[in-house]
Amino acid sequence: MRRIVVLAAALIAPVHAASAAEAEVAAAHHPAAIAVDSEVGFHHGGYGVAVGLDAERESFGLAANVDTLRLEEEAGEHTPWQESVVIASLLPSFEVAGGPAGHVRVAAGLDGIFAQGHAWVGPALALQIDAGLFGPVDAELMAELTPVPFTRVDAQAGLALHLATLDLRGGWRHLELHDNGLVDDEDHDDVLDGPYVGVGMHF
């Protein structure tokens, strides 16, 4: 009887060790429960500074972001967000796919623009993808759309380096803002492209 118990323990031990190792790898790639991020982006004639707070629990998440943009003034052109604009968003999210290789999240919430005495709020949809490349380096993709009452198309592609609780990011951002004639019945458009760098912490 003792030999049977010893043999069973010997067979179970490797399985338990493998399961523990798999759990450790999965935990290492699982999104942080709380993350605080800041980014600085640069585009032709201006720059932007963004701060964000993400909270996630299992498959559900909530992201709050505030993005302040400094825009270039065009001679004779007075857009509703001339000189500066603040973009604020609140996006509940759900993880549709996840594992050691990466995560895919979809989000739907509210997006607002505040500038020069004007304010508009509309529905927003977003898609976020992160994929592990090697070691602590991930590829990150983000796309967000606000169709009405203004139009915002926002997309980012970059890399993230995770060092313990510290996150370093960099990449390229494409942003389109269209007021759809809300101010003076004329369409005013801004298209911004440029690099961004960021730093954050997760807990």
Rank of each mutant, 00 (worst) to 15 (best):
D130K: 08
P92M: 02
Y47W: 07
R2I: 07
S38L: 00
A28M: 07
L141P: 08
R105W: 09
E56T: 15
A88K: 04
V15Y: 03
G122K: 02
I87H: 14
P31I: 09
A28Q: 14
H78I: 09
T79H: 10
Q82E: 13
R152Y: 05
D54L: 13
Q156P: 07
Q156T: 12
A97W: 04
H103N: 06
D185G: 07
Y47L: 02
V15M: 12
P136V: 12
Q156M: 15
G102L: 09
D190L: 04
A50M: 07
E56V: 15
D138Q: 00
A75F: 14
P195A: 04
P147I: 05
H103W: 11
V199P: 04
A119E: 00
L90C: 02
E83W: 04
E77L: 14
E24H: 14
E144V: 00
H30G: 09
N180R: 15
A10V: 10
G48K: 00
G117M: 06
P92Y: 08
V137C: 01
L90R: 04
A160R: 15
A107C: 05
T146N: 02
V40A: 04
P92K: 07
V197N: 08
M201L: 15
V121K: 03
H202E: 11
A115Y: 10
V121Y: 02
V199W: 00
A8R: 13
L145M: 03
A28T: 05
L91S: 04
L11A: 14
H188Q: 14
A26M: 05
V25G: 01
V49S: 00
A157F: 14
A27Q: 13
P123G: 11
L90W: 03
G122E: 01
P80N: 07
E39R: 13
D111Q: 03
V183N: 04
V148W: 12
Y196T: 05
E95C: 10
V86Q: 13
V183H: 14
A28I: 09
Q116D: 04
A64H: 02
H118Y: 11
D190G: 02
N65Y: 07
A8C: 12
D189H: 10
H188S: 10
E39D: 14
A9F: 10
L192K: 03
D111C: 08
G181K: 11
S38M: 15
V85G: 04
H162M: 05
E176I: 12
E24M: 02
D184V: 12
A33T: 14
G45T: 00
